[in-house]
C-alpha cells in the first residue's frame, strides 16, 4: 500500500489475529492486530472489567518513553468505547505496528531514540478502532480522530488539518482530537503555545472533520481541499469501509 493523502483501509490483513486492520492516511501506514477477549495475566486481572492493553511499536528503533506515553493515551480512550464490563477478568490486546511515517527530507534520520511524531496519534487511533470493529469486539460507539496544526507564518494564521512533518516542526502548536459517533469529545491532546480561543477554533475544525457524515452538499460526500479547514469525511470513510467488509462476510445471505 503506498502512502496516500486520502485515507485507505484494509481489514482482516493478519490471518491469525482475531481482528486486524491496515490503515494509511497522510503518509502514515499503521497495521493493528486485536486479540480478545482472552485470558488475562493475574497481575492485570480486574474483577468487573476487561483489561485493555495497547502496545505501540515504531518502524525503526526500540520504543521508548514517547511510545509508552502514546500507549497510555490510547489505552484510556479506547477503554472508554469498548464494552469492558461484558468481559470481567479478560484481556483485550491491541498491538499497533507503525510501518511507515512521512519522512522529513530536510533532516537526516536519528535512530536510537526513535521519537514518534505527535501527529501519528490519529493514525494509530483510527487503525485501532478499525481493528476492533474487524474483530467484532462489542463497543459502545465508534470513533474518529484527526490532527490539527496551528502555524503563524508571515503574520497570517493558518489551520492545517493532517500536517506534514515539516509543518509540525514549524507550527506554533499541534493538537490531536478524537470524537465518538455520538459527537462526544473522547481525546484531546495538545503540544505547543496556544490560547483558549485558538483551541476553540481547533475544536470546531476537528469536529467538522471527524463528525461530518455522508450526504453533504447535494448528496455527495466531499473531500475538501481548500486552504481553510479541509479534510476527508472520516466518519463516512469508516462507515463505508465497514459496510463493504460486512457485505463481503455475509455474501451468502
Amino acid at each position: 500500500m503506498t502512502a496516500t493523502t486520502a485515507p485507505e483501509a484494509a481489514l482482516g490483513v493478519l490471518p491469525r489475529a482475531d481482528g486486524s486492520a491496515k490503515y494509511s492516511h497522510a503518509g502514515y501506514i499503521v497495521t493493528a492486530s486485536v486479540n480478545g477477549p482472552i485470558e488475562a495475566q493475574r497481575r492485570d486481572e480486574h474483577p468487573y472489567e476487561a483489561h485493555v492493553d495497547v502496545i505501540v511499536r515504531p518502524a525503526a528503533g526500540v520504543g521508548g518513553t514517547r511510545e509508552r506515553h502514546l500507549e497510555s493515551i490510547l489505552q484510556s480512550s479506547l477503554a472508554q468505547i469498548i464494552l469492558v464490563r461484558n468481559f470481567p477478568r479478560s484481556l483485550i490486546q491491541i498491538v499497533l505496528q507503525v510501518e511507515h511515517s512521512p519522512e522529513n527530507d530536510y533532516v537526516n534520520t536519528k535512530l536510537v531514540q526513535a521519537n514518534l511524531n505527535f501527529a501519528i496519534m490519529p493514525a494509530l487511533f483510527q487503525t485501532a478502532v478499525l481493528a476492533l470493529l474487524s474483530a467484532g469486539v462489542p463497543m459502545k460507539a465508534t470513533a474518529t480522530a484527526t490532527a490539527v496544526a496551528l502555524s503563524h507564518q508571515d503574520g497570517s494564521k493558518r489551520t492545517i488539518v493532517d500536517p506534514s512533518p515539516r509543518e509540525v516542526e514549524t507550527a506554533q502548536s499541534v493538537h490531536v482530537l478524537a470524537f465518538t459517533s455520538h459527537d462526544e469529545l473522547l481525546l484531546a491532546e495538545s503540544e505547543g503555545d496556544f490560547t483558549v480561543k485558538e483551541w476553540d477554533d481547533v475544536y470546531e475544525t476537528a469536529s467538522k472533520v471527524c463528525c461530518q457524515s455522508a450526504l453533504q452538499k447535494e448528496g455527495i460526500a466531499m473531500v475538501l481541499d481548500d486552504e481553510d479547514a479541509g479534510g476527508p469525511a472520516m466518519r463516512h470513510f469508516l462507515r463505508s469501509t465497514m459496510e463493504s467488509k460486512v457485505a463481503a462476510d455475509l455474501h451468502w445471505k
Binding site: G136, P138, M139, V246, L250, K253
Partner: peptide
C-alpha cells in the same frame, strides 16, 4: 444491548 427504558443499541458492526 438494551439500555433501559426503551433503547436498543448495536454493539458490533454487522447486518
Amino acid at each position: 444491548r438494551h439500555i433501559p427504558p426503551s433503547d436498543i443499541v448495536p454493539t458490533v458492526a454487522g447486518q
